[in-house]
Amino acid sequence: MLATGSYNIFVLVKQVPDQGSKAGINPDGTIDRAKAKRMLNPFDRYALQAALFTKRTYGGTVTAISMGPPPATEVLLEALEHGVDLGYLLCDRRLAASDTLATAYALYKTILYVGKPDVIFCGLQTTDGDTAQVGPQLAERLNLPQITYCEDFAIVNGKVEAQRIIEGGTQKVVTDLPVLVTVANSYHALEYKSFRGAWRVQQLKRNPEEMSKYIRTVDLDVIGADAERCGLKGSPTIVAATEKVGEIGGNCCMFEGNSPEVLISDLLAAANVKEYIAALEAK
């Protein structure tokens, strides 16, 4: 029997530059964030799906939280279109250049401000920060148990039963709520936008006053965060230097412009694949 309840579900989403698009990618490989196309962090789509599935299956409300510059509203609207109930954007210039520790602190203060979650879903990692650290760092601040690399999440008789990926296998874990979960990309893909959600966002876009009720923008003062612990000042790490990765090898022996038969026989003539295979077989 499934216990149904009115679960307070939070999902953390981030807007990241779209890597698929060449816009805003400087010749030296760095990103011009103002010019780059933006998108919802692909990993957060799985977190969103887990949050919405939990709401649908067990009852409750889903609040999406994001920290970022004003355009990050877009990912909250996208979340609303998928069926999220409410969005909060933490937006403050003093957050610029936050590393994961400062980000986790700011999100922690946001969560305390927004309410008491039963479960917080995060993406496994972001494609720009790409650390998978914010989730566990947040769990530490909130003193919560965590389930990272989660690929299956259920609430059975009020307890969480989940499956997570471990090195070379999987693990089933059981814990109480509240809990913080980072959702692996082996979880179910995000479903299509809900018709109702999309319609609602259309309505909201025409009515800024209504919009501000569903997408609430807060700053460090509102949530009562210590600005010294945010942004560059609150970040224990900095990027000191970036360097272009030198081309490795660089003398690839190419085979081209012939029939597959010729290409492969040329390859076998040039490469000691034969010896490789023989050596492997000998083991």
């Binding site: 990618i25 494609t127 720009d128 224990p236 790490t237 990027v239 970036t242 360097e243 990765v245």
Partner: peptide
């Protein structure tokens, strides 16, 4: 570590 973007390595210090 390799960083965001196509061909960069970042040196991170703390």
């Amino acid at each position: 570590r390799p960083s965001f973007g196509e061909s960069l390595k970042a040196r991170i210090l703390g």
